[in-house]
Design a binder for these strands. Structure first.
Lengths: 247, 247
DNA sequence: TGACGGTTCTGGTCCGACCACATGACATGT
DNA sequence: ACATGTCATGTGGTCGGACCAGAACCGTCA
């Protein structure tokens, strides 16, 4: 094996700033809710320009660790928060669009994650969550529902189940993966010929899924979820899809 | 259910820039390998300042969609790439540190993902990957191996298996989740009293896991992987851990 | 007491300049 | 002719300063 020589690549200053802040987060010195000093103060303290600091803050913002508000008062300024969902969603969405992941990969990941979600949801879902899911399904059964709205409700149903699993991490991952294929699913739904039949069968499956969750039939719910997802993805594989990933 | 009114929050310009570029990626107009115009050209085209553009580019960079190189020549400038792993890893690592996810959540997610990884690896792993895994295990069996190195090799073993599953998405997710608890596992390993016995039993499990993968015993590999992970996490729950997540 | 308006603090944006680095073109010397 | 050194150029990276917009605070005035 030949030795790989790669350039030393000394860090850019905004990366150093990022590491500094990241280290304080990892060390527990910065917790959710904490406020950072104003940019104009923090920049000279760290010995960098405001621009470089801002770029580091922007990074933290995009991964859902920080939010910034202008103005004055207790809510103004930059605060540490925990909003991983949007960040993760955007990440996977873009990478799926770029072809980092094939449709088959997404299918298997969905099966894996949603099996787990449905299984856990069957034990953890609260009555309120069940009721909310019922409402979503009821709206999906409305005659003459538009494709876009159906897709939206469908997404929300799966995400809701994931959330009701009680596991924030798998919930986040499930939602992000589901969201990443949302445009693709929308296109597939738009191409459906027999719309009433398609929605009808999907609605039936959803109703049965929710019933199994409500009654705590964990394994059955997981199995049906897998069947549900595989069945629908099966209608996608003939369509346009990002090619298999290279480097 | 009362209606939630939240401020309109008109986008900041760098977000608009981001949406513009993101849209072109989602539309397939920007593909991996494509180069963006120089910042000094692109900024006026988009009608924004170079600073705002740079902040948008920084976002794309942090989610592993773009790399920038200064200098001159064909490799210089900003290029679209596909490097989701580091980005995802950092995201989960920070959020785990912030307590967005409890240790139990991570445990269940690991079980779910790694079951899938081992199961798929049992069918897809190439001889080269098996051999590489053998090497890792061999090095972990070295007498007097340091805690840090053991942890490193252990991480690489699990990540390697995930990669050899043939599914880039679950591989990425598995690696990221595994990496997010890496510091915690390191601390746990350092606190182990009977180090030789611990490594011995872990090594035995790893060897058996790899054997099952090599011989294509998918289900057995998945089951043992679950046992392996749960067993080790069991030793962690008494230790310090980020608290359960609030909003 | 209440309403109003100015002050102040915050992030957001923009501009212009310079730096560091890598390349490529050119000049120079052998 | 070739090798070598030097300079011009183009790229991202950094910096400082200025101004804008919005929100809260505070004092004044009715």
């Amino acid at each position: 094996m030949s030795v790989e020589w790669e350039p030393v690549r000394q860090s850019r200053t905004h990366e150093l700033v990022l590491e500094t802040i990241e280290a304080r987060v990892l060390a527990g010195e910065l917790k959710a809710g904490d406020r950072l000093p104003p940019e104009r103060e923090l920049a000279p303290v760290l010995g960098v320009s405001r621009s470089a600091l801002r770029e580091a803050l922007r990074v933290l913002e995009t991964i859902g660790v920080l939010v910034a508000q202008s103005g004055r008062g207790p809510d103004a300024g930059a605060r540490i928060v925990r909003h991983p969902d949007d960040a993760l969603g955007r990440l996977l969405r873009l990478h799926f669009a770029l072809g980092s992941y094939s449709l088959e990969d997404v299918l298997e990941a969905r099966v894996t994650l949603e099996r787990s979600s449905f299984q856990a949801a069957a034990g953890h879902a609260s009555p309120e969550e069940i009721e909310e899911a019922e409402t979503l399904l009821w709206r999906m059964r409305a005659p003459g529902v538009e494709v876009a709205e159906f897709n939206d409700l469908d997404t929300r149903f799966h995400v809701l189940i994931a959330r009701s699993s009680g596991n924030r991490l798998t919930s986040t991952l499930t939602s992000a993966v589901r969201e990443s294929v949302r445009p693709l699913i929308l296109r597939a739904l738009e191409a459906v010929e027999d719309w009433p039949a398609t929605t009808g069968s999907l609605n039936d499956e959803h109703a049965e899924l929710l019933r199994l969750v409500r009654e705590g039939e964990a394994t059955a719910a997981a199995d049906l979820a897998e069947k549900h997802i595989r069945g629908f993805h099966g209608t996608l594989v003939d369509d346009k899809q990002p090619g298999p990933a290279g480097q």
